[in-house]
Design a protein around this nucleic acid. Structure first.
Length: 862
RNA sequence: GCGGGUGUGGCGGAAUGGUAGACGCCGGGGACUUAAAAUCCCCUGAUCCUAUAGAUCGUGUGGGUUCGAGUCCCACCACCCGCACCA
């Protein structure tokens, strides 16, 4: 290795070994230093590390290394969210075992992570598919059951009648199973649920204390929990004691009601369907199509008139028709609503379609007419009109009045509802945590005794036939009942993988063999000081983790409620897409049957960045026949296999080294925004690594002499980089380091310059640790820079003594002047008026006002 | 449909209501070299122009508040993300 070029292929591995041998990233829970727990969302072992992982873990790594330099004892662990569907898909497609496939992926990805030089405590590594982990999860699940937080109920799933399996929403494409292509049915199964709704109010309240969470995440969780206050009331069938219970958040619009609508799976609809074939058919129609909220709500509004009528609670003689409607959800409220078309868009769409009355009951400004025109509902505030005794009230007054009347007259009561639903955790799949329960004809549902945990997954499973392998396994499910000793069967559902990620951060802090965690050890590290991950987890994962932590607190396992003190959600790594349009090959013509068709004379395919040669603004591809074709450069979008716009981190590290890749991940884009990957960008980072290396080589311990300007710049940079890293503004810290590098390069040799160079080694070491170690060592410093202290800065040097004053005339910049820091307003005004350029602009006009902002600006108003 | 976000040069972006474009990339010009690579230096928002100077315009669109708006307010447009069995 020569001194003029930094060689990452040698240095990276050498320093990674040095760190490992010195064990400097092992977190010592008995240390009396202040503790920092830095955590990035652990990866699913899909096979290869992708750039999104690199970005995520580089951010956490910079913070972890920085905290260590600031004298903290840092816990920075890594593990594997190892259960999930891709492993079962691989088993079906490639005939491999999900466990073997997963273990192999973990080994590969771990090797990849190690090459990037992350400051991780690998001694705490685990995978959620380890029986030592999921066995403890089973134990916690049983605790939750005993605490009344687990229950079973019927719930609908997507059922593929050909593959005989439950499908995830993402496996349902246009209402059909992704593999079989069969029409997906909705089927009811008895499933396990966690009572997250018990904590709805608590989870909502807790958000206000999360000062270091992004507002957008808190807002999304707030909307997800969806607290609303309203009225639950009964609309009685005409001449009957029975009725339909309705929940509404708009009791103020009750006099505008024109129909009652119930969900397709509402008990009354179900009961009627038994003797009304047309209704049964309508309900079946509603059941076709997807189950996702987006699909339900964008579907065309459809209704079925049951022929029944109900009495309006405020006017018995007033009868409303009862419809079954596809836009009413059984999961929310009571599964029934009253429709007030004038003031709700969905109700209006429905009323117009079925020609129902539309009556205005809230004034839209001066518009009070009872007849409502147009197809846009009025949902704003206003006075109540056309509503008998409520006329003139505000919306809020009317809400309170109706609730009070309902409670007084006994036909309803005020109620708080949440949009949040209980969490269905049953999955009819193999590769997950087995639910530790046993079904006995005599004793019912019985938990597996804790001394029999873990309930391990059987290894000998077969994926060649459809259905859940646990259900089909010849022996696994047959057990003795722990209660009566009779014949019984294991539960064959497994837990949703979100349960695995709902407490892993506790297990990193403490992993005893005989219990899920040791509360005292956990208390030393938790809550996580900084959690970093993708915005896609803003709701589900983060809400479930908050829920588990609260549940564990309620059960006495923990004494805190919030797991993550600070949260940061980073953006995605994106890349251009490349497509080429070419004639089909003979083989393709045969496959698609296009031998003679003129219509199919070309095929458009995606190309990977590696296949494309870029020349300036254009791009080209040599096809298999050696013909060069122009490539169309498409939009910059998230890296994904299907669009082939991915870049493999291993290739980047081979070419540029780990530090260049890390530097790129931190440069330019703010961390919360998307980062567009480009070849030019990584090349620039590679050049900067070498540039720093040359500068570091000029460190001279024997140099003497001052350089006040450089020293000032160094101290300003130390303070700014620290501030930027703590705020996770890595792109700004990077810009600061570029600036100091440029200044130091140009400075003449001096003791101050050597100090600046040594300072730069430290400032850049969290980002480019291998380069920094190598330079530190070459400069003759003892020890590892990873263990060095962050440099101090002198606050006095942060203040400039000369400032530039902008001079404006009517808000437009006319001149800039230099003035001493802290100059008086009078002096600045005089200085500004003395400017020839300013005088030319004023051109003799009368000066009406002069605004002076000390140390910044003078604005002259004429 | 509901919820959340983003929008500034050719590109990524910077800017406590106070000099818009820091820093990086791309591009152009030059130095060094037999040459190339590497490196270094200079220029680089648009338009006008009598060109080392000067003027006008310019932060998605249209309004507003203010001495002064990328930043605050109102309305709109475009794009992206999430929507409960993907992780």
């Amino acid at each position: 290795m020569t001194d003029t070029r930094f060689d990452p292929s040698q240095a990276d591995g050498r320093w990674q070994r040095a760190w490992e041998e010195a064990g400097i990233f092992h977190a010592d829970s008995n240390s009396n230093k202040p503790k920092s727990y830095v955590l990035e969302m652990f990866p699913y072992p899909s096979g290869r590390i992708h750039m999104g992982h690199v970005r995520n873990y580089t951010m956490g790594d910079v913070l972890a290394r920085y905290k260590k330099m600031r004298g903290h004892e840092v816990l920075h662990p890594m593990g594997w969210d190892a259960f999930g569907m891709p492993a079962e898909n691989a088993a079906m497609e490639k005939g491999v075992h999900p466990g073997g496939w997963t273990r192999e992926n973990i080994a590969n990805m771990k090797a990849q992570l190690k090459r990037i030089g992350f400051a991780l405590d690998w001694s705490r590594e685990f995978a959620t598919c380890d029986p030592e982990y999921y066995g403890q999860e089973q134990s916690l699940f049983i605790d939750m059951y005993e605490a009344g937080l687990v229950y079973r109920k019927e719930s609908e799933v997507n059922w593929d009648p050909v593959d005989m399996t439950v499908l995830a929403n993402e496996q349902v494409i246009d209402g059909k199973g992704w593999r079989s292509g069969a029409e997906v049915e909705k089927r009811k199964l008895n499933q396990w649920f966690l009572k997250i709704t018990d904590f709805a109010e608590d989870l909502l309240d807790g958000l206000s204390g999360l000062d270091n969470w992004p507002d957008k995440v808190k807002l999304m969780q707030e909307n997800w929990i969806g607290k609303s206050q309203g009225l639950r009331c009964t609309f009685r069938f005409v001449d009957s004691d029975h009725g339909i219970e309705v929940f509404t958040t708009r009791p103020d619009t009750m006099f505008g009601a024109s129909f009652v609508a119930i969900a397709a799976d509402h008990p009354f609809a179900q009961a009627q369907a038994e003797h009304v074939p047309a209704l049964a058919e309508f309900i079946a129609e509603c059941k076709r199509g997807g189950t996702t909220a987006a699909e339900l709500e964008t579907a065309e509004k459809m209704g079925f008139d049951t022929g029944y009528s109900v009495e309006h609670p405020l006017a018995k003689h007033w009868h409303l028709p009862v419809y079954v409607a596809n836009f009413v959800l059984m999961d929310y409220g009571t599964g029934a609503v009253f429709g007030c078309p004038a003031h709700d868009q969905r109700d209006l769409d429905f009323a117009r379609k079925y020609d129902l009355p539309v009556t205005r009951v809230v004034a839209d400004g001066d518009e009070t007419a009872s007849e409502f025109r147009g197809d846009v509902a009025y949902t704003g505030p206003g006075r109540i009109v056309n509503s008998e005794w409520m006329n003139g009230m505000t919306v809020d007054e009317a809400k309170a009045a109706v609730i009070a009347k309902a409670e007084h007259d006994g036909w309803g009561q005020g109620e708080t509802q949440y949009r949040l639903r209980d969490w269905g955790v049953s999955r009819q799949r193999y590769w997950g945590t087995p639910i530790p329960f046993i079904h006995c004809d005599t004793c019912g549902v019985v938990p597996v005794p804790k001394n029999q945990l873990p309930v391990e997954l059987p290894e000998d499973v077969d994926f060649s036939t459809p259905g859940n392998p646990l259900l089909r396994h010849p022996t696994w499910k047959h057990v003795e009942c722990p209660g009566c000793g009779g014949k019984a069967e294991r539960e064959t559902d497994t837990l949703d993988t979100f349960t695995n990620s709902s407490w892993y951060f506790l297990r990193f802090a403490s992993q005893p063999a005989d219990k899920p965690f040791d509360p005292e050890e956990v208390a030393k590290w938790l809550p996580v000081e900084q959690y970093i991950g993708g915005i896609e987890h803003a709701i589900l994962h983060l809400l479930y983790a908050r829920f588990w932590t609260r549940a564990l607190q309620r059960m006495g396992h923990l004494d805190f409620a919030e797991p993550f003190a600070s949260l940061f959600t980073q953006g995605m790594v994106t890349h251009e897409t490349y497509t080429v349009t070419r004639p089909p090959t003979n083989e393709e013509r045969q496959i698609f049957g296009w031998e003679d068709e003129a219509a199919h004379q070309s095929i458009t395919q995606y190309l990977t960045p590696a296949e494309v040669e870029k020349r300036g603004e254009r791009a080209f591809w040599i096809d298999p026949d050696g013909i060069e074709r122009e490539v169309e450069i498409g939009r910059v979008i998230k890296m994904s296999k299907s669009k082939k716009n991915t870049v493999d981190p291993d290739n980047i590290i081979d070419t540029y080294g780990a530090d260049a890749a890390r530097w790129f991940m931190l440069s330019d884009s703010p961390p919360e925004r998307d980062l567009p990957w480009s070849e030019a960008g990584i090349e620039g980072c590679g050049r900067f690594v070498q540039r720093l290396w040359r500068l570091f080589g000029q460190y001279d311990a024997g140099a003497s002499g001052e350089d006040k300007a450089l020293t000032r710049k160094l101290h300003q940079t130390i303070a700014a980089v620290a501030e930027d890293i703590e705020a996770l503004n890595f792109n700004k810290a990077v810009a600061r380091i570029y600036e100091l590098t440029s200044v130091a390069e140009k400075a003449a040799p001096s003791a101050a310059r050597s100090e600046a160079i040594a300072g730069l080694m430290k400032l850049s070491s969290p980002m480019m640790p291998h380069l920094a170690e190598e330079a530190w060592h070459r400069a003759g410093f003892a020890g590892l820079i990873a263990e060095a202290a962050w440099p101090d800065h002198d606050p006095a040097l942060l203040i400039e003594d000369e400032v530039t004053i902008a001079v404006q005339h009517m808000g437009k910049l006319r001149d800039t002047l230099s003035a001493p820091k802290g100059a008086s307003k009078e002096d600045l005004e005089a200085l500004a008026l003395a400017s020839e350029k300013v005088q030319r602009s004023i051109d003799g006009a009368e000066i009406r006002k002069v605004i002076v902002v000390p140390d910044r600006l003078v604005n002259i108003v004429t």
